[in-house]
């Protein structure tokens, strides 16, 4: 890494070719309409940005921007409402799924999603999560699992891996004293109120494509009125893992994914 070449822009000026490919008819990937122009406050390399973009892309593709209401959590994504160009409600810590329930119950024809981190969804909000799923609310729950409390500065989350160092487990998570990392997605996949449950990641282009498909399913299934769609996105936290973004995605692949394996935990039409 130390030998990385740091080049100057002037080196590339002569690379400009005569016939530019960068014209609208050749555009194959652009920021979705449903993302606002506001620069995100997330740390460099944070998976939240990709997760946000995928949700926005799906909302664009389904053409449901005017019918979508999002619920932001407490955590790093507390400002999620600054980035989604849809109506949004900011929820108290852990209560996003209850807030989403309230919205969906009075506006059953709207698409409602909550966006929650691991501390929000799997610690302080476990009760709301389980019961929202058990009631089979027709909402999409996006669960961002990076194994740590990001906003408060890197404390242990319910999903922190065994042995993983955080500011509150400075010698690594000792499961005898601090309990085991919680696979809440496996837990809620058991509930009859959950119609679709999937675990994805956004650390590689392939995973990003699959994650988008899962989010797409999550929104689409709301039309069926069959229950909760739950999509866990295993993601990184370079700042609090104390790694570069590239290292963090590698670490995620090597440590997080073996414990939190990717794939559909519950797929309609397929018994798992």
């Amino acid at each position: 890494m130390n030998e990385r070449r740091m080049l100057d822009d002037s080196h590339y000026e002569n690379l400009i070719e005569e016939e530019s490919v960068c014209i609208n008819e050749n555009l194959v990937y652009d920021k979705p309409e449903t993302l606002t122009k506001t620069p995100m406050h997330y740390c460099p390399g944070c998976g939240h940005g990709v997760a946000h973009r995928l949700i926005a892309e799906v909302i664009d593709e389904l053409g449901i921007q005017e019918k979508t209401i999002g619920v932001a959590p407490v955590g790093c994504a507390v400002f999620a409402y600054n980035y989604f160009n849809v109506d949004m409600s900011e929820a108290a810590h852990g209560r996003a799924s209850a807030v989403a329930t309230g919205i969906k119950r009075v506006l059953p024809d709207r698409y409602v999603f909550s966006y929650q981190g691991d501390g929000d969804l799997a610690a302080i909000g476990t009760g709301e999560t389980i019961h929202t799923c058990n009631r089979g609310e027709n909402i999409l729950i996006i669960f961002i699992n990076n194994g740590i409390y990001g906003m408060t500065g890197g404390q242990m989350a319910p999903t922190t891996l065994e042995g993983m160092k955080t500011t509150t487990t400075p010698f690594g998570r000792d499961v005898q004293a601090m309990g085991y990392p919680l696979k809440i997605t496996e837990l809620i996949a058991q509930l009859p109120g959950v119609y679709y449950c999937s675990r994805v990641a956004v650390n590689t282009p392939v995973h990003v494509r699959k994650a988008k498909k899962a989010i797409y399913n999550g929104f689409k299934f709301q039309e069926l009125n069959k229950g909760v769609s739950f999509v866990e996105i295993v993601t990184n936290c370079p700042s609090n893992w104390k790694m570069t973004p590239v290292e963090s995605n590698k670490w995620l692949e090597e440590h997080m994914l073996p414990f939190y394996p990717l794939g559909d935990l519950k797929l309609p039409g397929k018994e798992n």
Binding site: G102, V106, E128
Partner: peptide
């Protein structure tokens, strides 16, 4: 009218928060 027995008062009041945010009478 929607009537829902929540799992706790904490959930109830947050459902109220969500539903009240839509401008409905809750």
């Amino acid at each position: 009218m929607v009537v829902l027995q929540a799992e706790s008062e904490i959930a109830s009041i947050n459902m109220i928060y969500g539903a009240a945010g839509t401008g409905k009478k809750v």
